[in-house]
Design a protein around this nucleic acid. Structure first.
Lengths: 241, 241
DNA sequence: GGCGGGATACTTGTACACAAGTGCCCAAGG
DNA sequence: CCTTGGGCACTTGTGTACAAGTATCCCGCC
């Protein structure tokens, strides 16, 4: 389906999907730190590289700008946004408030079928850790948090969380070295799931808070170690206009 | 060359600011119900009316689309988005979770100066109601909620709330008839402020929950009365514009 | 050698022409 | 009268040329 050998008369794959791929790629690279804060992106250059015209490229860059990952300065250029520590802290606040409340409602609403699905989800996480598949574990991590929202009947709220989560993920990607980290997260996930299945709303919320704050503490630690990645809103003569 | 025979200096800044004004106007009209769900907007027509070209107009429409107020259908047209009741409910959830948590933190952090500012804010609301200035009251309403976030040290979280609030405001604007409504909201605001100033975190959170749920109950009532404004999840349609 | 000013090579912003696709409308034929 | 097919007018999407602005670098001047 996707892999047309390029010689077919049907027009190429709709320039629009190319733009979507470009957006996904840039977002990924910014989150992963391949593109570092301050790096410049040129509309012309990207258009040339992707073989699409400036117009769709512009829309991609503006969208990234709206997501807080890019700064478009009118007649100067487009630059990967610095990581704003205040934005990271506020993202953490939003995530915690939303997910704790969601897990409370989930505890009240969870069905037997959902409980067993959640159990299997935890087992899958365990398997990924055993296999040393860190990336796979983090994918399941995100899936579990989404599942809790779904159980609470608030699936679409994930869009809001995803929006603020980008800032958190940028920091998280700065360090994936610690091999014991996923195991600790898993044990916290198990605690959340156990409280949830026991329909212990406040216990589940407390466990979620502990979980998210653990993640945030790590972020703060990372921030200190990678100060150059962060925006200094500090008193020094930083003329950010 | 052939494009602009008279390169008049009249160009000014108008291009960009005109687009900003267009965005504000359309947003306002959609929220206020002047533009009703399903109404079509044409890029060409808007460009002609505003005397700017399609490119900035396009960006405005896409931005409105990202805000969930417009639907751009590729080769068909752009239409004012229907009010999705699920989206409204989820917006309510987000607001309640964020503002209740914020008011908890605010209760722990409020200073004497902030407490007196809050008291004056309440008095201002009272004055607007006494003057029969409903619009002014709602402006102060929003300002008070923002002030609580500020006291909690989470001022930038307002951006998230503002994003979801649009859906709620669309419904709220459907009915402003009930003259006793602002007075009830004021009394709830007074309760929140009292608990806040007393540093009663849980009491403040509970009062905030009561407040927001009162608003939401009204929204549900309005929804039933204006079913034609809402999106019907049913497959059959509609049309007849 | 130090300094200042202007050409220049970029950047994003804007305008416009054209491409691709959809739905309506009307006319022709059964 | 009903059905059906094609023309047409309209939509948004895309490509491209040009406008406006900024930073840099080099050359002339002091």
């Amino acid at each position: 389906m996707a892999g047309n050998p390029a010689s077919l008369p049907e027009h190429y794959e709709t320039a629009r999907s190319k733009a979507a791929r470009l957006h996904a790629r840039l977002r990924e690279e910014i989150l992963a730190g391949v593109l570092r804060p301050g790096d410049a992106l040129s509309e012309n250059l990207l258009a040339e590289q992707t073989a699409i015209s400036r117009t769709p490229v512009r829309e991609v860059l503006h969208r990234l700008s709206a997501e807080g990952l890019l700064r478009v300065v009118p007649q100067i250029g487009s630059f990967v946004a610095p990581i704003n520590l205040a934005a990271v802290t506020d993202s953490q606040f939003v995530r915690e408030a939303l997910e704790c409340q969601a897990v409370r409602q989930a505890a009240a609403a969870i069905t037997r079928a959902q409980a067993s699905r959640l159990g299997r989800q935890i087992e899958a996480q365990q398997a990924r850790i055993a296999a040393g598949d860190t990336a796979g574990f983090f994918a399941l991590d995100e899936a579990m948090h989404r599942m809790i929202l779904e159980i609470a009947g608030r699936a679409t709220v994930w869009q809001v969380i995803a929006g603020v989560k980008a800032q958190l993920d940028r920091v998280r990607h700065l360090s994936l070295q610690d091999a014991t980290w996923p195991a600790m997260l898993l044990s916290q996930h198990q605690e959340i799931a156990a409280r949830l299945i026991a329909r212990d709303a406040e216990g589940a919320a407390a466990a979620m808070a502990v979980h998210l704050r653990t993640v945030f503490a790590a972020i703060a630690r990372i921030a200190a170690a990678h100060a150059d990645f962060f925006e200094t809103a500090s008193p020094t003569t930083q003329e950010t206009r």
